[in-house]
Simulated assay, not measured.
Amino acid sequence: MKTYTVQQQPAAGSCHYRYTKAKEPLPDLKCTPGAISPAVTQANLARTICRKGGYTKGIRPPVSVTGQEKRLNAVSYGYTGSLRDAEFDHDISLQLGGDPNDARNLWVEPMDPGHKPGGGVNNEKDPVETKLHTAVCSHKVTLAAAQHAIASDWTTALHTLGLD
């Protein structure tokens, strides 16, 4: 298992959320453009993200690292809500070959519209990630296309790729 260290986050207040018309949060493309793991390629999908047995569990950084990064990244984004209601999310998810601990791939994702404060983490991005993963592993779309689509705008990724 890889050893992870706390990564430096963008300067305080330098990142700004984008929002869709439906008020879904999107990361700042300058701070969080997404970053991919060089260990995952189109050629090795069966041995990495598409293998049975949990690829993401084996590469996920420990909470001792991500907890500190989440607090620092909240300052980067000016996030002032409860961190219990926000997810420290991979812009390009681990199940799509996103880098596990590159600051360019991590952001404090605030609650979705209508989510009740104190209700814990809940976001609409997760099912999109799973559908993209299924499409990549069934060779309906390429890994690169899925990575680009989700990093650009997760709310339109399925439509962009003809998967909706």
Rank of each mutant, 00 (worst) to 15 (best):
residue 110 P to N: 08
residue 94 L to R: 05
residue 16 H to C: 05
residue 66 T to V: 04
residue 8 Q to E: 14
residue 53 G to L: 05
residue 145 A to P: 10
residue 124 E to S: 15
residue 72 L to A: 15
residue 83 L to K: 05
residue 58 G to C: 06
residue 9 Q to A: 13
residue 90 H to L: 07
residue 22 A to P: 02
residue 136 V to Q: 09
residue 6 V to I: 15
residue 81 G to P: 05
residue 133 H to W: 15
residue 17 Y to K: 03
residue 35 A to W: 07
residue 147 Q to R: 14
residue 95 Q to T: 13
residue 126 D to I: 04
residue 71 R to C: 04
residue 80 T to F: 01
residue 164 D to Q: 12
residue 121 V to F: 04
residue 39 A to C: 03
residue 30 K to P: 00
residue 12 A to H: 11
residue 140 K to N: 09
residue 102 D to K: 11
residue 24 E to G: 00
residue 92 I to M: 01
residue 86 A to Y: 07
residue 13 G to T: 13
residue 73 N to P: 01
residue 58 G to I: 05
residue 50 C to K: 03
residue 133 H to A: 06
residue 120 G to T: 10
residue 155 T to C: 08
residue 80 T to V: 12
residue 29 L to Q: 14
residue 13 G to H: 12
residue 158 L to N: 10
residue 157 A to C: 08
residue 104 R to E: 00
residue 102 D to A: 10
residue 82 S to F: 09
residue 69 E to D: 11
residue 33 P to S: 03
residue 120 G to Q: 09
residue 47 R to D: 14
residue 157 A to E: 11
residue 12 A to M: 10
residue 53 G to D: 02
residue 116 K to V: 15
residue 81 G to I: 11
residue 129 E to L: 02
residue 142 T to L: 07
residue 53 G to F: 06
residue 15 C to D: 07
residue 29 L to D: 12
residue 163 L to S: 07
residue 162 G to Q: 07
residue 114 G to Q: 08
residue 106 L to I: 03
residue 32 T to L: 04
residue 1 M to K: 14
residue 83 L to E: 01
residue 34 G to L: 01
residue 124 E to A: 15
residue 100 P to V: 03
residue 106 L to R: 11
residue 23 K to N: 12
residue 140 K to P: 05
residue 40 V to D: 07
residue 118 G to E: 04
residue 80 T to W: 02
residue 25 P to D: 09
residue 38 P to D: 15
residue 6 V to L: 10
residue 28 D to R: 01
residue 69 E to Q: 15
residue 159 H to K: 14
residue 79 Y to D: 00
residue 37 S to Y: 02
residue 123 N to G: 04
residue 66 T to H: 03
residue 155 T to R: 11
residue 6 V to T: 14
residue 53 G to W: 02
residue 77 Y to H: 07
residue 18 R to Y: 06
residue 21 K to P: 03
residue 54 G to W: 02
residue 89 D to Y: 00
residue 105 N to E: 09
residue 104 R to S: 01
residue 118 G to F: 03
residue 107 W to T: 03
residue 34 G to A: 02
residue 60 R to Y: 02
residue 71 R to E: 14
residue 131 K to P: 09
residue 130 T to L: 13
residue 56 T to G: 02
residue 120 G to Y: 08
residue 50 C to E: 02
residue 78 G to Y: 11
residue 117 P to G: 10
residue 97 G to T: 05
residue 6 V to G: 09
residue 10 P to K: 06
residue 44 N to M: 08
residue 48 T to R: 04
residue 19 Y to L: 12
residue 154 W to S: 03
residue 40 V to M: 06
residue 15 C to I: 10
residue 8 Q to L: 12
residue 106 L to P: 08
residue 119 G to Y: 04
residue 57 K to P: 00
residue 46 A to W: 01
residue 89 D to T: 01
residue 22 A to T: 12
residue 98 G to I: 01
residue 8 Q to S: 14
residue 73 N to T: 10
residue 39 A to Q: 13
residue 114 G to C: 13
residue 22 A to S: 13
residue 53 G to M: 05
residue 52 K to S: 14
residue 152 S to G: 04
residue 159 H to I: 11
residue 45 L to S: 04
residue 159 H to A: 13
residue 121 V to G: 02
residue 101 N to D: 15
residue 56 T to Y: 04
residue 134 T to M: 04
